[in-house]
Design a protein around this nucleic acid. Sequence first.
DNA 1: AAATCTGCCAACCGCCTCGCT
DNA 2: TAGCGAGGCGGTTGGCAGATT
Length: 278
Amino acid sequence: MGRQPCCDKIGLKRGPWTIEEDHKLMNFILNNGIHCWRMVPKLAGLLRCGKSCRLRWINYLRPDLKRGALTEMEENQIIQLHSRLGNRWSKIAAHFPGRTDNEIKNHWNTRIKKRLKQLGLDPVTHKPIEQKEKTDEKLEAVLPESSSSKDEAAESLEVKSMDNHAQTDFPGKYMKQDEVELTSDETTSLLNSYEMLCGNLDVGLWLNQDANTTTNTCSPSFSMEGSLNPSMVKPSSLQENTLQQNFLQQWVNSVDSFLPWDGFNHIEEELLFLENSQ
DNA sequence: AAATCTGCCAACCGCCTCGCT
DNA sequence: TAGCGAGGCGGTTGGCAGATT
């Protein structure tokens, strides 16, 4: 039998992406947005499968990605979240705007696991290694039958125990519950900018507001659906042009510092258009 | 200087979930 | 309600770079 492949892989390219492919994908998405990943490679002129394009965009090309190594503070947050969520990397990554689940997963597997082991903690249970067996026995005794309900119970037990754990057994290693929700101002600001650029916000409303207040109004959550078309925010007056131009320039400057290549031709074109139309 | 080892991370694979018909 | 397809997710791997022998 076998499962149907996600796409026809005959003649499709695999392996590392070239700069040219990155340009094609980036320009296509910025121009057209994402409606159907399966169609993206065809329309963008790429010999890749849709899944590959999606992964490349999410893990590498997305303009809101935060570059650089994870900080110790972020590591601590990951440890705490992992203790409650397990290997649900996407859920964990959702607490770190600009970080990808792949990045966090890699970091966990290559560094944090070792760090925990060095501290004498089991990376799976987050408990001192010698306590693991006792806990397992306890679960067996309480939940001898249903495996799914056992999982659920284990999860809830884990949550409770970790909350205590964090505050008693390992003072200073974990942060308080409410601190997990904190996000970097820098990242949030960048996300806000990006959402504005992509037209997630009501531009008319935005233009009517004091420019200083708009950067604090967005949700830190990042939504790509139907939001990646800068033409949606094409200005219609001189005033809008100026605001738009300032904004785009700021945004390009802020993003440019951590991009591996000069990948914002489209936005630069947009800037040229704005300059010329004044 | 060459061979081998180790760590890191981008990318792939295949299963799961969800929405649509 | 079942079947199907697309997107999402987590586990795993391949290859590169730097370190070590």
